[in-house]
Amino acid sequence: MAEKVLIIGSGPAGLTAAIYAARAELEPLMIEGVERGGQLMITTDVENYPGFSDGIMGPELMEQMRKQAERFGTRIVSSDVTAVDFSEQPFKVSVGSDEYTADSIIISTGASARWLGIEGEARLRGYGVSACATCDGFFFKEKELIVVGGGDTAMEEALFLTKFASKVTIIHRRDEFRASPIMVKRAVNHPNIDIIWDSVVEEVLGDTLVTGALIRNVKTDEVTTFNADGIFIAIGHVPNTKVFDGVLDLDDTGYIVTEPGTPVTSITGVFAAGDVTDKIYRQAVTAAGMGCQAALDAARFLDETT
């Protein structure tokens, strides 16, 4: 028997969709993924999610949402989806050798950190290369670090890392940050944060551990070696849509295309919510709102077709 609603991904969008679908007695099945809970699992204090006047820790918020979804009967599979076939009803979703079928699908696979794709980066990941200050900052007490990027995430990471590191150097390819003024001010005024403008990292250096990076000034083309014990990459995110490539309409940066203001994708009965389709707002609360929309639209779709 096909599932009525199958939800892929378990961040705020997916779990909100699950809560609504479960309460509508659609008995949702959620393939939560290995990186369950999404980006909030690697966030510390969440201070802007309504309803928590003293703030809440990201992992705690996700645990609460998950319990709420389970309370109404959401069933959860803790693996990654490996393939999908949406060419005919019921839709097929594979998790390794297990195949699930469903009358409607809600995609909420979110986005992941973008990497530079330079020499040494992948090899030294976990050995000084990281994309998550809150996860790995602890391991760099009294060390010197590089943060690559110029947006809010880069500023946040740099500021967070000053709790541990003796010095943080932000390397940015332009001569100004695109981060919000308040974050830029905090970073620029911080005594332990230096900034190198107009520069890109060409290579991460180190044999078994990071020892530094090759930095190229984009205006002069001068290449220098910069010594550091760790390098944090904060250059934005990429949507997790690899398994949907060629299946659904994606835009040129890989985001799932939906009808404006709705979770409706290019395939009837397949809906998308949260960061996997949103490159503008990207907030926990907007993702949750989109998850709600997706569940309500899926319910309406099932009503009309069955």
Binding site: T43, G58, C135, F138
Partner: peptide
């Protein structure tokens, strides 16, 4: 593992 590490908690059950 550490208390403050979200992805660590994910590993507890498995």
């Amino acid at each position: 593992w550490a208390e403050w590490c979200g992805p660590c908690k994910v590993m507890d059950g498995p």
